[in-house]
Design a protein around this nucleic acid. Structure first.
Lengths: 153, 153
DNA sequence: GGGACTCGCCGAACGAAATTCGGCGCGTGC
DNA sequence: GCACGCGCCGAATTTCGTTCGGCGAGTCCC
C-alpha cells in the first residue's frame, strides 16, 4: 500500500472504466505492472468492486429521505431480521445500524413525497419490532467521489 | 428506457468493468448495439459515472459514524458554505442536507473511535454556525449495490 | 392500401487494449 | 560480496472496443 497503490485507488474511484493503459500512463508505470497492482488490490480486498452510478431522478425516483427507526427488542435476531427486511425493500438505498437514540437509519428513494407516507404506513408501522420512526426529507445529498487514507491526524 | 436499458443499468451497477461483449451476451444483443445503448444512457445522464468501491478498513479507516449537526442561521450562504467545508474534510464520506430536527447528517470514517472526538472538537465545535451536534457510531452499513426503477407503487 | 422514410439492430473489419510471460535490475539477507 | 527473491518492464498474443454499411420492421403520409 504505497503511493502508487493509493494513486490507483484514487484514479479508479474517479473513473473505474478508464483503460489500464491510461491509468498506467498517468502513474508513470508500465501497463503490465499497473494491471498486476490493480489485481493485487482487488485480491487483497482494498478494491471491493466496480459500480456504475445512476441518477435516481432519471430512474423516476427523485425524492430521497432518511428514516430514523427505533426497534425493540434489540436482540441480534430482531436486528438482523429487520435489516434483511429493509434491504429487500426496493425503495431502500442504504441501511445504517447505529448507536445512540435511533437504532436504524434508512436511506430511501421514491418517486414522490406521497410515497414516503405510503412506505412508512405500509412497510414500517405494521411491523411489531418497530416502536418508533421518523422521516426526514433529503434536500441535498453529496457523496465524496474519491476516498483515500487519512494523511495526518 | 425499456427493459434492455434497465438490464444494462442493473448489470453495470453490479459490475462496471465487465466487457461490453459479456454485457451484450447476457442481454442477448449484439455488442455494437449494446455499446450504443450504454453510450446513450451515459449521455442522457442515467448513468453518471463508474466508480471503484473500496474497503474503508483496508484504507485504515474502519470506524464510521453519523454526525447530526444543527446550524444557524439557515440561510443559503451558511448552508452552502458549511456543506463545502464538510466536503473538504478528508474524514467525510457523505453529506445529507435534511429537513426536520437536524440540518445536516454527515457520514464520516476515521481510524479509531478517539478520532471521532477529535474531529468533533477540532472541526465542528469551533465553527460559529454550528449550534449543536451529536454523533452516532455506525455498527453496520449496508449499501444496496443495484438500484432500479420501482416496479409497482 | 401501398410506398417511402426513419430508426434501431446486426455483423464484419480494423485499430486498440488486456493479458501473459520471459528476462532484467535492485534491494536484502546471509 | 554473493546469491536469492521480488517487482518492474516490454514484446507477443489474444481479446476487446469501435466504426460503418446494410438490413428489416414499424410508421407516416399520400
Amino acid at each position: 500500500m504505497d503511493d502508487i497503490d493509493s494513486a490507483i485507488v484514487r484514479e479508479l474511484q474517479r473513473d473505474a472504466r478508464q483503460t489500464n493503459r491510461d491509468l498506467a500512463r498517468t502513474l508513470g508505470i508500465a501497463p503490465s505492472t499497473c494491471l498486476e497492482r490493480v489485481r493485487a488490490l482487488r485480491q487483497r480486498g482494498v478494491i471491493t468492486g466496480y459500480r456504475a452510478t445512476v441518477d435516481l431522478g432519471a430512474l423516476g425516483r427523485p425524492v430521497q429521505a432518511l428514516l430514523s427507526v427505533r426497534i425493540r427488542p434489540m436482540s441480534r435476531e430482531v436486528i438482523e431480521g429487520f435489516k434483511a427486511y429493509l434491504i429487500g425493500l426496493p425503495e431502500v438505498l442504504n441501511v445504517y445500524v447505529v448507536a445512540g437514540g435511533d437504532d436504524f437509519l434508512v436511506h430511501v428513494a421514491v418517486p414522490e413525497v406521497d410515497d414516503l407516507h405510503s412506505l412508512l404506513m405500509d412497510r414500517f408501522s405494521g411491523r411489531r419490532e418497530v416502536v418508533d420512526f421518523r422521516s426526514s426529507v433529503i434536500y441535498q445529498h453529496v457523496t465524496k467521489d474519491v476516498v483515500g487514507p487519512l494523511v495526518a491526524g
